[in-house]
């Protein structure tokens, strides 16, 4: 037939083959891959971490990633670093990979995290005695809905966050039923309308988080967390059950990196090890987007303008 057709086909396949060969060689110059999750402080923080690394002369690439699946991806080297590892939500997944050896615990932020049952301020009037958990339990009926009647309804985080709320309700013999929202969006959507309508609500929340900038509210105070509370039934205020305590109040916020990263890019790793956000930093990052309605890039730029000396030290300290 037409020789030109075959020529074109031959050329195309040769080009493809060449590209495939080039793929092997391109590895060394790979950009640093930073995941983007779907909450604001993380997005702004990722942008800041990226810009700091760029200041240090490194190329970065942002990858949208599910916050749960990201640890497995980091283990495979698909993602180079996660700069917001929450103890409560991701501690289990993170520590599993660290003990496997494919993820390195690179640094710990000054920020302390807390995840707990939470209510907007107006609920205090409906249920006197809050934030004590027994007071909450006493007015459980006020939180009941058609699907949970006669029990009170606690709106939990997504089931995959594995918060063990069902176990806590059983452990403290509370008159509540846990309804797991399917996503953080669902949590905030319900909080938005409930506070607009001043409806009683108690839901899962965490700090630092943009919610504290938008809504006034408090965490429920459960019996203090202690070592063994979740494993040993005999310990704690209920001698027959496990999980008869609240969550730890000062959980860590860490930076994790892929095991191969320090060797592949030691200079960038040195910078990452110095990066350190405190509670105020995280809260400001979230607030710039949520309250001041800035775009993520603008918020990152603003934080960097306001904290120049802070992050400059991270970059320069490592290059010297």
């Amino acid at each position: 037939m037409k020789p030109i057709k075959y020529l074109a086909a031959g050329g195309a396949s040769a080009a493809l083959f060449g590209l495939a060969l080039a793929a092997g060689g391109a590895q060394a110059a790979d950009p640093i891959k930073i995941p983007l999750h779907n909450w604001n402080s993380q997005l702004v923080g990722a942008e800041i971490v990226g810009r700091i690394l760029e200041e240090g002369g490194h190329e970065v690439e942002y990858v949208p990633a599910d916050s749960g699946a990201v640890y497995e991806a980091m283990c495979e080297g698909d993602i180079d670093l996660v700069h917001e590892v929450w103890q409560g939500a991701f501690g289990v997944a993170f520590e599993k990979q660290v003990s496997k050896g494919c993820v390195v615990d690179a640094a710990t932020h000054d920020a302390k995290t807390r995840e707990e049952w939470w209510y907007p301020a107006y609920v205090e009037e409906m249920c006197p005695g809050l934030p004590d958990w027994q007071a909450l339990n006493a007015c459980a009926a006020k939180f009941s809905t058609a699907e949970t009647k006669p029990k009170g309804r606690f709106l939990g985080g997504p089931a995959e966050w594995l918060k063990k709320d069902d176990e806590r309700v059983a452990g403290l013999e509370m008159n509540f039923q846990v309804v797991n929202a399917g996503s953080a969006d669902a949590l905030w959507a319900e909080l938005a309308i409930a506070s607009e309508k001043q409806q009683p609500i108690v839901l899962f929340n965490w700090t630092p988080n943009f919610i504290e900038a938008v809504y006034d509210g408090k965490f429920v105070e459960f019996p203090e967390y202690f070592e063994g509370c979740r494993e040993d039934a005999s310990k704690g205020i209920n001698p027959n059950t496990t999980h008869d305590c609240g969550n730890p109040k000062d959980g860590y916020l860490k930076i994790g990196v892929w095991e191969g990263f320090p060797e592949k890019n030691p200079e960038a790793y040195a910078i990452i090890q110095k990066i350190n956000f405190n509670n105020l930093d995280i809260a400001v990052m979230a607030k710039l987007v949520d309250v001041d309605k800035m775009e993520v890039e603008d918020a990152a730029a603003k934080w960097m303008d306001d904290n120049e000396s802070k992050w400059r030290a991270w970059v320069e300290g490592s290059s010297s």
Binding site: E160, W161, A181, G182, A186
Partner: peptide, 22 residues
Amino acid sequence: IAGFIGGNNDLAREIFKAKAQN
């Protein structure tokens, strides 16, 4: 997709859990 709303102990919820643990 309605699993992102949540509220039922259905297959969607279990798939999301499996997703989080890869």
